[in-house]
Structure formats: structure tokens, C-alpha cells
Amino acid sequence: MSSAVRFETVGLRYDAYGPEVLRDVDFTLPAGSFHFLTGASGAGKSSLLKLIYLGAAPSRGQVTVFGQETTRISPADRTSLRRRMGVVFHDFQLIDHLTAFDNAALPLRVAGQKPKAYSEDVQELLNWVGLGARIESYPPALSAGEKQRLAIARAVVGRPWLILADEPTGAVDDDMAVRILRLFVELNRLGATVLIATHDHELVGRSGMPSLHLDRGRLTQVPA
């Protein structure tokens, strides 16, 4: 099975003289796999996701995503790689002056699709995550849970090959958490590789999916 993501002796420090937030991280996520990424706050979960979505470059080692080394990638290839990913950020990163509809449709819009082509799909997805009545609302008017669901809708709307989610159920109730997890499982069943960073051990246990565990920047648990 080909790998979707591969880390080889990866180290990351944000500052040349600062501490290493990730150290000697080695793992491979096969294409089409589903994993959780667990660890305490500050363990480096968000930083690890950042390296995958090309938000930062490793200080040492190599990160390969869908066969492309992320430190030797042209802007065009980086864009094409990012179009194959859906990312749910811990802080949602929604655009405040765009409606929920426009925020959710953003990946399709920047890829050049016409509103006519994606309008129905986006509305359906927003209905599915429970935001059908808030389609024309702006993020500042949404609750934390609604923002999170909107961020998830935006991440999955383009049917990405790789879904990276940073605490995607942190601000929603249990029922919605299960519903969101079911969505990720369904997308995984359709072929997407999924990596969810969480410290919700109950969610991990309930899903029965394998997990990687980070402890102070080191990977201490890697599924076989």
C-alpha cells in the first residue's frame, strides 16, 4: 500500500535557538488509513499537522506527502497538494467577512469552480452539519460549536484525499461529536486518509481506530 504521509527523523524548532517541539519523529500513514493523534496539550500535535499541511518546514529530516517531499516543492505543486487536503484548524481560521456558505465553499471557489456548480453540494453539507439555518450568518455571529462544524464543512467540501483535523470535536456536544466522527469515517471509507489530533480518549476508544501518541515532541506510540 502506498503511503499518504511519511515522516523520517523529523525535528522541528520554530526558532533557531529555541527548543525542538518535535524530535526524531518517524512514521508512515498508508493511503486510505484512519488514525488519531493523541498527546497532552503542548505535546506537538498541532505542529505535526502543520508540517503535513505545509504550514512549516521541518528543521531536520524529511516529510513526504503523497510522494512529494515538502521541503523541495514548487509553489504550484504545493497548491496542488493543498487542494488534495482538508484541514480543520484548532482555532477554525474562518474568514469573518464571509458568510457560512462562502466560508464552506472556499476550497471550491479558489479552485475555480462556479457557484452554480457547487451551490447545492455546499448547502447540503451545511445542512448535514446542522448549519442549514445559519447559511447566511457570519462567523462572529456563530457559537464555538457552530464555527467548528463550519470549519469541518470547509475541510471536507472538496472531497480531499487527506483530512487533517485538530481537535475537531472540542467544541461540540457528544451527539455532534459522534456525527462528525461518522462523517470522517464515511470519507475514509470513500478513500480519504484521515488523521485526527485529539485528547478526547473516549472518542478514540469508541472509534476503535489506531492512534499515534506524542509525548513532549517524541512519538511514543506508532501503530504497526
Binding site: 509553489p75 497548491t79 493543498r82 487542494r83 484541514v87 474562518l94 472556499l106 479558489v110 472538496g158
Partner: peptide, 16 residues
């Protein structure tokens, strides 16, 4: 900056 970052992460090219 944050908006540009989001656009870039959601697949917008530099030209876009």
C-alpha cells in the same frame, strides 16, 4: 495575513 494564509491553505495559488 490570516485570511491570506487560509486562502493559501485551501488551495489558492499565489496568482489567485
Amino acid at each position: 495575513h490570516e485570511m491570506v494564509q487560509v486562502l493559501s491553505l485551501t488551495g489558492a495559488t499565489h496568482a489567485y
